[in-house]
Design a protein around this nucleic acid. Structure first.
Length: 240
DNA sequence: GCGACAG
DNA sequence: ATCTTGTCGC
């Protein structure tokens, strides 16, 4: 049988999906609740050879959405990792930012970038929340569902939920909860720096999500995958 | 009704 | 997210 080029979502699925992007806020929220039921928050995730980092930036005063994906080769020795591929995909911005509906603004462009990727990753880290979302469908979860890959949400600030104080040592963390449910962890990724919010996006557990983020931490606040994707999305690097 | 609110 | 200069620190 013919080998399908690497594109996590088939063309036909893309069409069906794209129809579901431009929705009125109420419809979008209803769809999130529906999709959240399909999110799997458990292991195993299988052997990891390549890890992708995803982030979105904007150009032309916000009219153009710029999706960046960086693929790193995982090494047991830890970071810094080798960059094996980087892709940037641009397309017209779909809609304005609405708290809680970020995925409808960013996932379409992210899928466009993944469609151009040659190296299939086994794990994806996304800049934003996973299930640490009012309806349990942050951008990392939404993207994970369509890519059908394990994803982790790595956010720089809180969207919802409450938590106690986080220890001061690198690696200290405390649970993030919302409406009586555990939705993620608040992690001190670096001393003297605001903690980051980690949550499973899809197809892995809380523990595994936290493990991989800690394994990818180098000397900065953000784990390597999202740190590099961040730079690429705002065109400050890698590109070399 | 009054805040809070990923990127 | 983006618009923006210098500045404090490793």
């Amino acid at each position: 049988m013919a080998k399908r080029p690497y594109a996590a979502v088939s063309v036909r699925d893309r069409l069906a999906i794209e129809h579901a992007w431009d929705l009125a806020p109420e419809k979008a929220r209803a769809l999130q609740s529906c999709l959240a039921q399909r999110v799997i928050c458990a292991d195993p995730i299988g052997p990891v050879e390549h890890i992708a980092g995803v982030d979105i930036g904007f150009e032309a005063g916000g009219d153009i959405t710029r999706a960046a994906v960086v693929v790193l080769k995982w090494s047991p020795e830890g970071p810094p990792f080798q960059v094996v591929e980087q892709v940037v995909h641009r397309e017209p911005t779909r809609m304005a930012y609405v708290p809680g509906l970020l995925s409808f603004r960013e996932v379409p462009a992210a899928l466009g970038a993944f469609a151009k990727l040659q190296t299939p990753p086994q794990l994806v880290m996304v800049d934003g929340q996973g299930i640490a979302h009012p309806r349990r469908l942050g951008v990392a979860s939404h993207l994970g569902l369509w890519l059908d890959l394990p994803t982790i949400g790595v956010a720089k600030s809180r969207l919802c939920g409450t938590h106690g104080n986080v220890g001061e040592q690198r690696g200290d963390w405390t649970p993030l909860e919302h409406q009586g449910e555990r939705i993620g962890a608040v992690l001190r990724s670096r001393v003297n720096v605001k903690p980051i919010y980690i949550s499973p996006g899809h197809r892995l557990s809380f523990e595994t999500a936290l493990d991989w983020v800690m394994r990818c931490l180098h000397r900065t606040k953000l784990p390597e995958p999202t740190r590099l994707a961040d730079r690429l999305a705002s065109r400050r690097g890698p590109i070399v």
